[in-house]
Deep mutational scan, measured.
Amino acid sequence: MDVFMKGLSKAKEGVVAAAEKTKQGVAEAAGKTKEGVLYVGSKTKEGVVHGVATVAEKTKEQVTNVGGAVVTGVTAVAQKTVEGAGSIAAATGFVKKDQLGKNEEGAPQEGILEDMPVDPDNEAYEMPSEEGYQDYEPEA
Protein backbone atom coordinates (compact mmCIF):
# COMPACT_ATOMS: atom_id res chain seq x y z
CA MET A 1 0.00 0.00 0.00
CA ASP A 2 2.90 2.36 0.77
CA VAL A 3 4.34 1.77 -2.69
CA PHE A 4 0.98 2.61 -4.24
CA MET A 5 0.63 5.82 -2.17
CA LYS A 6 4.22 6.82 -2.94
CA GLY A 7 3.55 6.31 -6.65
CA LEU A 8 0.42 8.48 -6.49
CA SER A 9 2.34 11.15 -4.61
CA LYS A 10 5.05 11.23 -7.29
CA ALA A 11 2.42 11.40 -10.02
CA LYS A 12 0.76 14.31 -8.23
CA GLU A 13 4.11 16.12 -8.00
CA GLY A 14 4.56 15.61 -11.74
CA VAL A 15 1.14 17.05 -12.51
CA VAL A 16 1.82 20.05 -10.27
CA ALA A 17 5.19 20.63 -11.97
CA ALA A 18 3.60 20.39 -15.43
CA ALA A 19 0.85 22.82 -14.44
CA GLU A 20 3.44 25.26 -13.14
CA LYS A 21 5.42 25.07 -16.41
CA THR A 22 2.22 25.66 -18.40
CA LYS A 23 1.36 28.63 -16.19
CA GLN A 24 4.87 30.02 -16.70
CA GLY A 25 4.57 29.59 -20.48
CA VAL A 26 1.25 31.42 -20.57
CA ALA A 27 2.72 34.24 -18.47
CA GLU A 28 5.68 34.52 -20.87
CA ALA A 29 3.36 34.56 -23.88
CA ALA A 30 1.26 37.29 -22.27
CA GLY A 31 4.39 39.30 -21.53
CA LYS A 32 5.60 39.02 -25.12
CA THR A 33 2.15 39.99 -26.38
CA LYS A 34 2.20 43.07 -24.15
CA GLU A 35 5.67 43.93 -25.46
CA GLY A 36 4.42 43.64 -29.00
CA VAL A 37 1.36 45.81 -28.38
CA LEU A 38 3.52 48.51 -26.78
CA TYR A 39 5.84 48.25 -29.77
CA VAL A 40 2.90 48.80 -32.13
CA GLY A 41 1.79 51.84 -30.13
CA SER A 42 5.20 53.46 -30.51
CA LYS A 43 5.44 53.02 -34.28
CA THR A 44 4.69 55.66 -36.87
CA LYS A 45 2.14 55.29 -39.66
CA GLU A 46 4.61 53.40 -41.87
CA GLY A 47 5.66 51.00 -39.15
CA VAL A 48 2.31 50.00 -37.70
CA VAL A 49 1.55 47.25 -40.17
CA HIS A 50 4.97 45.71 -39.57
CA GLY A 51 4.46 46.12 -35.81
CA VAL A 52 1.19 44.17 -35.87
CA ALA A 53 2.99 41.34 -37.67
CA THR A 54 5.70 41.47 -34.98
CA VAL A 55 3.06 41.06 -32.25
CA ALA A 56 1.67 38.01 -33.99
CA GLU A 57 5.11 36.51 -34.54
CA LYS A 58 6.28 37.04 -30.93
CA THR A 59 3.07 35.54 -29.63
CA LYS A 60 3.39 32.58 -31.98
CA GLU A 61 6.97 31.99 -30.77
CA GLN A 62 5.85 31.92 -27.16
CA VAL A 63 2.85 29.71 -27.86
CA THR A 64 5.25 26.93 -28.82
CA ASN A 65 6.43 26.91 -25.18
CA VAL A 66 2.94 26.20 -23.89
CA GLY A 67 1.50 22.71 -24.04
CA GLY A 68 -1.90 21.08 -24.20
CA ALA A 69 -5.25 22.78 -24.43
CA VAL A 70 -3.78 26.07 -23.24
CA VAL A 71 -2.28 26.57 -26.71
CA THR A 72 -5.70 26.99 -28.26
CA GLY A 73 -6.71 29.64 -25.71
CA VAL A 74 -3.43 31.53 -25.98
CA THR A 75 -3.67 31.53 -29.77
CA ALA A 76 -7.20 32.95 -29.62
CA VAL A 77 -6.15 35.62 -27.12
CA ALA A 78 -3.12 36.52 -29.23
CA GLN A 79 -5.24 36.86 -32.38
CA LYS A 80 -7.73 39.11 -30.58
CA THR A 81 -4.84 41.17 -29.20
CA VAL A 82 -3.41 41.65 -32.68
CA GLU A 83 -6.84 42.62 -34.02
CA GLY A 84 -7.26 45.06 -31.12
CA ALA A 85 -3.83 46.57 -31.76
CA GLY A 86 -4.80 47.14 -35.38
CA SER A 87 -8.07 48.77 -34.34
CA ILE A 88 -6.21 51.05 -31.93
CA ALA A 89 -3.75 51.99 -34.67
CA ALA A 90 -6.64 52.84 -37.02
CA ALA A 91 -8.52 54.79 -34.35
CA THR A 92 -5.49 56.90 -33.48
CA GLY A 93 -4.78 57.67 -37.12
CA PHE A 94 -1.46 55.81 -37.33
CA VAL A 95 -2.76 53.72 -40.20
CA LYS A 96 -5.79 53.66 -42.51
CA LYS A 97 -8.36 50.93 -41.95
CA ASP A 98 -7.78 49.54 -45.45
CA GLN A 99 -4.11 48.93 -44.55
CA LEU A 100 -4.95 46.69 -41.60
CA GLY A 101 -4.44 42.98 -42.13
CA LYS A 102 -1.75 43.45 -44.80
CA ASN A 103 1.99 43.19 -44.52
CA GLU A 104 4.48 45.61 -46.04
CA GLU A 105 4.12 44.02 -49.49
CA GLY A 106 0.32 44.39 -49.33
CA ALA A 107 -0.37 40.67 -48.90
CA PRO A 108 -3.10 39.69 -46.43
CA GLN A 109 -1.89 38.70 -42.96
CA GLU A 110 -5.01 36.85 -41.91
CA GLY A 111 -4.42 33.26 -40.97
CA ILE A 112 -1.00 33.75 -39.38
CA LEU A 113 -2.10 31.94 -36.25
CA GLU A 114 -5.09 30.02 -37.58
CA ASP A 115 -2.95 27.84 -39.87
CA MET A 116 -0.64 26.81 -37.04
CA PRO A 117 -1.12 23.07 -36.36
CA VAL A 118 -2.41 22.69 -32.81
CA ASP A 119 -3.66 19.58 -31.05
CA PRO A 120 -4.92 20.18 -27.49
CA ASP A 121 -4.48 16.48 -26.68
CA ASN A 122 -0.87 16.43 -27.96
CA GLU A 123 -1.66 13.29 -29.96
CA ALA A 124 -1.00 14.26 -33.58
CA TYR A 125 -0.36 17.30 -35.68
CA GLU A 126 -1.74 17.99 -39.12
CA MET A 127 -0.20 20.29 -41.67
CA PRO A 128 -2.23 23.34 -42.77
CA SER A 129 -4.37 22.92 -45.88
CA GLU A 130 -2.62 23.24 -49.21
CA GLU A 131 -5.34 25.38 -50.81
CA GLY A 132 -3.15 28.48 -50.76
CA TYR A 133 -0.06 26.72 -52.12
CA GLN A 134 0.98 26.67 -55.77
CA ASP A 135 3.03 23.98 -57.44
CA TYR A 136 6.54 25.12 -58.19
CA GLU A 137 8.13 24.07 -61.43
CA PRO A 138 11.75 25.16 -61.88
CA GLU A 139 12.71 26.74 -65.15
CA ALA A 140 14.86 24.55 -67.41
Score class of each variant (00 low, 15 high):
residue 111 G to K: 12
residue 40 V to D: 00
residue 49 V to W: 13
residue 82 V to T: 06
residue 135 D to H: 08
residue 114 E to I: 12
residue 45 K to I: 14
residue 94 F to E: 03
residue 43 K to T: 04
residue 31 G to V: 03
residue 120 P to A: 09
residue 62 Q to G: 04
residue 29 A to W: 14
residue 103 N to C: 07
residue 41 G to I: 05
residue 74 V to N: 01
residue 115 D to I: 04
residue 26 V to W: 15
residue 59 T to A: 05
residue 114 E to C: 14
residue 78 A to K: 05
residue 48 V to H: 00
residue 32 K to T: 02
residue 72 T to W: 06
residue 108 P to I: 04
residue 114 E to A: 03
residue 65 N to L: 08
residue 47 G to S: 15
residue 41 G to F: 12
residue 114 E to H: 07
residue 73 G to C: 14
residue 90 A to C: 15
residue 67 G to E: 02
residue 43 K to Y: 14
residue 42 S to C: 07
residue 21 K to N: 02
residue 134 Q to L: 13
residue 49 V to A: 11
residue 51 G to R: 08
residue 83 E to I: 14
residue 89 A to R: 07
residue 125 Y to G: 10
residue 101 G to Q: 12
residue 84 G to S: 11
residue 108 P to G: 03
residue 91 A to C: 11
residue 50 H to M: 14
residue 115 D to G: 14
residue 122 N to C: 04
residue 50 H to S: 12
residue 112 I to G: 10
residue 17 A to D: 02
residue 58 K to S: 06
residue 135 D to E: 13
residue 72 T to N: 14
residue 88 I to G: 04
residue 51 G to H: 11
residue 121 D to A: 10
residue 104 E to G: 09
residue 61 E to M: 06
residue 35 E to C: 11
residue 98 D to L: 14
residue 104 E to I: 06
residue 70 V to Y: 05
residue 99 Q to S: 13
residue 88 I to N: 02
residue 87 S to W: 14
residue 64 T to Q: 09
residue 134 Q to N: 12
residue 44 T to A: 07
residue 98 D to V: 03
residue 99 Q to V: 11
residue 117 P to R: 04
residue 12 K to A: 11
residue 128 P to V: 03
residue 94 F to T: 03
residue 17 A to R: 10
residue 94 F to K: 03
residue 76 A to M: 05
residue 65 N to Q: 10
residue 133 Y to C: 11
residue 60 K to G: 03
residue 65 N to R: 13
residue 74 V to F: 10
residue 5 M to D: 00
residue 2 D to R: 01
residue 50 H to D: 06
residue 53 A to H: 10
residue 28 E to I: 05
residue 36 G to P: 01
residue 59 T to G: 05
residue 25 G to A: 15
residue 29 A to I: 15
residue 97 K to D: 15
residue 115 D to N: 05
residue 9 S to G: 14
residue 134 Q to W: 08
residue 46 E to R: 07
residue 140 A to F: 12
residue 11 A to P: 00
residue 45 K to E: 00
residue 12 K to P: 00
residue 15 V to D: 00
residue 86 G to V: 15
residue 56 A to H: 06
residue 119 D to S: 04
residue 56 A to S: 08
residue 27 A to R: 08
residue 140 A to H: 06
residue 25 G to P: 00
residue 8 L to H: 00
residue 47 G to Y: 09
residue 10 K to V: 15
residue 50 H to N: 09
residue 120 P to T: 09
residue 81 T to E: 02
residue 38 L to T: 04
residue 119 D to H: 07
residue 6 K to F: 04
residue 10 K to D: 01
residue 86 G to L: 13
residue 37 V to A: 04
residue 38 L to E: 03
residue 99 Q to H: 14
residue 88 I to E: 02
residue 36 G to M: 15
residue 120 P to M: 08
residue 2 D to Q: 13
residue 20 E to I: 13
residue 25 G to V: 14
residue 62 Q to M: 07
residue 107 A to H: 06
residue 55 V to W: 15
residue 106 G to Q: 06
residue 65 N to Y: 07
residue 129 S to K: 04
residue 108 P to V: 08
residue 20 E to N: 11
residue 140 A to L: 12
residue 96 K to P: 04
residue 43 K to G: 01
residue 59 T to I: 05
residue 105 E to F: 06
residue 8 L to I: 03
residue 132 G to F: 14
residue 94 F to R: 01
residue 126 E to M: 06
residue 87 S to L: 15
residue 41 G to T: 12
residue 35 E to P: 01
residue 33 T to H: 01
residue 35 E to V: 07
residue 2 D to H: 08
residue 34 K to L: 05
residue 1 M to C: 00
residue 21 K to E: 00
residue 72 T to S: 11
residue 26 V to M: 15
residue 105 E to S: 08
residue 70 V to R: 02
residue 58 K to D: 01
residue 134 Q to Y: 07
residue 76 A to L: 12
residue 21 K to H: 03
residue 68 G to K: 13
residue 121 D to M: 10
residue 8 L to N: 00
